[in-house]
């Protein structure tokens, strides 16, 4: 493998990284100088390079979650200079160092939320999001029972809007960005995806009640329509999904009390 052809634009950076050994330990910001960073590196590759050095220096490498590194698995995500996923609206893995300039000081922190306990350094536990899905984020369709796929046509506009909501990658940036620590954008994206489809109608009321109930039980805050969530969402999930959730929730509560 060969080095970058043009190193003239390489940058010297100072990082201040949240280091926390384990869930019960106290954490602190620790400074690292990272010289000669190529602008073509991804943000995570910059951390890789630092970690290689830390390992050889008998220091503990910085733990961070990551996997696909192409913006779709939702594993990565840190707060960079106070913004979830950093200065570009994308996933942390798709952020490149050309978004920074020589001499920058970069603060790197984990998602901050009581419902996302820190596991180590920049790694948090987002199991609460899985539990919201478990509460009702599905359509009950036992394998093998499905009718022919063309049995129920779905208007294209509905299918497209359902897809837009379904592109949520579950990264948790919306929670990290929200002053209330709410996971309402995440929850609403699923309510919208499934609620727009004819297949999702039978469970529409129970879904919204159960998912919102679980959301609150996990300790996420309420939504007050601030919009920080959608501003950092790498997939551009719209705030209108939350309006839709509220409509569904009111409808479900009304029909529940009517019974």
């Amino acid at each position: 493998m060969t080095g970058s052809g043009d190193t003239s634009k390489d940058m010297d950076l100072k990082l201040r990284v949240w280091r926390q050994r384990g869930p019960k330990d106290d954490g602190a910001m620790v400074e690292y100088d990272v010289p000669a960073v190529s602008p073509d590196m991804s943000f995570l590759e910059m951390l890789d390079v630092l970690n290689e050095r830390l390992t050889l220096e008998d220091d503990d490498p910085i733990a961070f979650d990551h996997d696909c590194r192409e913006g779709i698995c939702g594993a990565c995500g840190v707060v960079i200079n106070g913004i979830a996923h950093g200065p570009e609206v994308t996933t942390t893995c798709q952020l490149h160092m050309r978004s920074f300039t020589d001499g920058d000081v970069i603060d790197i922190e984990p998602w901050r939320s009581g419902s996302f306990p820190v596991v180590k350094d920049l790694v948090v536990d987002r199991g609460s999001l899985d539990r919201i899905i478990q509460a009702g984020g599905y359509i009950s369709a036992p394998t093998g029972t499905a009718p022919d796929a063309h049995a129920v046509p779905v208007p294209k506009d509905d299918a497209d809007a359902a897809f837009d909501a379904a592109t949520c990658i579950g990264c948790g940036a919306c929670v990290a960005a929200c002053p209330n620590g709410s996971a309402m954008l995440f929850t609403a994206a699923k309510i919208t995806h499934l609620g727009l489809l004819p297949q999702g109608q039978p469970e529409r009321d129970s879904r919204v009640l159960d998912m919102v109930g679980q959301h609150d039980a996990e300790g996420f805050g309420g939504c007050s329509q601030i919009g920080e969530c959608t501003a950092v969402c790498p997939k551009g999930i719209s705030l209108s999904t939350i309006s839709r959730l509220n409509v569904d929730l009111l409808g479900a509560l009304r029909s529940t009390y009517a019974k």
Partner: peptide
């Protein structure tokens, strides 16, 4: 053939045409 039926029943939002078919 069965896979597509199963996925549609689960709510996988495949691309559709204006008539609502896949």
């Amino acid at each position: 053939v069965e896979i597509i039926d199963q996925c549609v029943a689960q709510g996988v939002p495949f691309a559709r045409e204006y008539g609502g078919l896949l």
